[in-house]
Write a protein that binds this DNA or RNA. Structure first.
Lengths: 342, 342
DNA sequence: GTTACTTTCGAAAACGTTTTCGATAATATA
DNA sequence: TATATTATCGAAAACGTTTTCGAAAGTAAC
């Protein structure tokens, strides 16, 4: 009942373990005849190399780690899918950990992955994360790491992102182009870079087009589990305090849908009374009524790209070449739908 | 720049590797003094045990494999979260693979996990899967495996499921209780056990309450990426062919929401003209208008439970105890909302 | 002072693979 | 026939840990 080893194949054929190992790896210094023989008995005995031993010898595990703030989330689960599918193509397995937006957990998990000796790490930072010692420790060990989506500009490593500022600018400009004069913004939490960038893009679009920037029109929401509710409550507040608003750029589709629900309820017409642009192009956004104008954020592609970059760095390290941090910006697209006037 | 090993700690302190190893594992046969000393220098040198070597020695990797049909899916991503969080508590890491509902891929992935020598496997079967040799191979190797959600009754292994038949019965009975006389069913694909069971529960509820079972009222949808669209098209067909239907039990919330969209569009009132019960309690179901009556399917808890069972079996195997297949049925709950009359 | 027991340590084997290097046998070259 | 070359193999070390078993030293008992 014990797993088959090289030794058993060797004994069966009365040759040495060395030769068996070499035969299975197509070394040129073993004759075609024995190579064939070894192959056959190996598959006959259903031999599977002991990965623990292989790992120990080769010092690599063909495994990478992935730390992600939340899993139950359309965008992030798309990223996961992208990563896994690409990793599988290259023969890598993916260990997934969820930081739950907690810095402490994230730190522990980095530690866990390091002691597990994964070949590389992919990470999207927790909202809470403001110190980066744990990330820098990884980099100091020359272990490949690439960040995606929730990144830190300070850290010198490869990143896969979208141009949040530009995308937000485009979204806001769209509202301006269709004639909105008083544009609000529902932004994300304060720390994450992308939530900051989206805010800055919004602000710049206003100023570039001679519209005043009014801080009281910016509402904050955490964009966590309560996104939908946050959309509703912020919409309620907005209607009470600023009934003159005619457009909103909202950090996330789910928040936007929450807001739209509230507007519907209060009889505020979309897009006649108020225009709405969301962010991320959640699959429900093309499905609700009215359909939601939004920025398409390519999660699956981001996952694929992040893994590809990590793979390059793994190869580079293996060949003792210096890995140079690369920042890859993915294209986003404004998708015009019914929630904004045409 | 090389990682610290036991050897280096030993040399630093002029003691043997053995003693260092024992000290770190609190063996009683090393004096408190040296134990403390070893600990201190270990943490000073930032020693991390080489997991490859540990795995090789102990023959376990503290890693499990998870094969799942789709990742980008609210229910399944909830399960993943449940598994990961529970696994983390017990010091296990989770490798995730996506079968994409393909039998061939699933088979390959089982093979991959076996050759990776994970300590156990969690799996939710692909829709396509109708042969179970790959699963039986795992069981034959005495490797712990537990199925969840999409299971096969034939296979003798532990399973975590809900009572789909009972849940469907409850859902259908609810429609009967509120006075529906002509009840349709949008079922899932033909192979999966849970889609079969839900259909059977629907049928039994009808017959138990003296309503005729009419096969032409049963519509099939794959419940894949196109769920929402399937809901719409099936609703369209239904309205054309059976305008007398006054209730539908729909396999999945997303399909139900698609159907509701179509009904709304055609001016069919919910619940006045037609009552709808969904399945799985997707978070959007409490949020759309009208809110959707549905069966709550506890994904997170299912993930947790599945891991716990797997953990038990891992321990059992380790202690050479026979593992006996256990079938755990989780409770579901009918959640009454606005899409059915009260 | 001898015996028995306890405390503390280390040598060595084992886990299963990969790879270097040298040895032998077979073949080609002169 | 003697020498150089090639083809084929295997011994052995190494990867870093865990664990068994025996040895040495110290303490207690008589």
């Amino acid at each position: 009942m014990k797993p088959v080893t090289l030794k058993e194949i060797a004994e069966q054929l009365n040759i040495s373990i060395t030769t068996v190992s070499k035969a299975l790896k197509d070394y040129p210094d073993v004759s075609k005849k024995t190579r064939k023989l070894v192959r056959e008995t190996a598959s006959m005995l259903n031999y599977k190399p002991n990965s623990f031993a292989v790992n120990l010898r080769t010092k690599e595990s063909k495994t990478i780690g992935l730390i992600i703030p939340v899993i139950v989330h359309h965008f992030f689960s798309s990223v996961i899918k992208g990563i896994i599918s690409q990793a599988e193509k290259k023969g890598y397995l993916v260990i997934i950990l969820q930081s739950d937006e907690s810095y402490d957990l994230e730190k522990k998990q980095i530690d866990l992955l390091l002691s597990q000796r994964v070949d590389g790490i992919l990470i999207s930072l927790a909202n809470e994360t403001a110190k980066f010692d744990h990330i820098n420790e990884v980099l100091a060990q020359d272990k490949p790491l690439v960040m995606f989506d929730k990144i830190a500009k300070i850290v010198k490593c490869s990143k896969v992102i979208i141009d949040d500022r530009k995308a937000a600018y485009t979204a806001t400009k769209h509202l301006i182009d269709i004639g909105c004069k008083r544009i609000a913004h529902f932004r994300g939490a304060l720390l994450p870079q992308n939530s900051i960038d989206r805010f800055l893009g919004y602000k710049k679009a206003l100023l570039d087009h001679n519209l005043p920037y009014d801080p009281s029109l910016v509402y904050i929401c955490e964009c966590g589990d309560m996104s939908f509710e946050e959309g509703k409550t912020n919409a309620k507040k907005l209607l009470k305090d600023h009934s003159d608003v005619d457009g909103i750029f909202i950090n996330t589709d789910l928040v936007a849908i929450g807001a739209m629900t509230e507007f519907n309820k209060q009889g505020v017409k979309i897009p006649e009374d108020i225009n709405i642009v969301g962010f991320s192009n959640w699959f429900m956004s093309s499905v609700i009524s009215p359909t939601l104008t939004t920025i398409d954020q390519p999660g699956y592609q981001m996952g694929k790209t992040a893994f590809k970059q990590l793979y390059k760095e793994i190869k580079a390290i293996k060949n003792k070449k210096p890995k140079e941090p690369k920042i890859i910006t993915l294209e986003t697209e404004l998708i015009k739908r019914e929630s904004t006037k045409s």
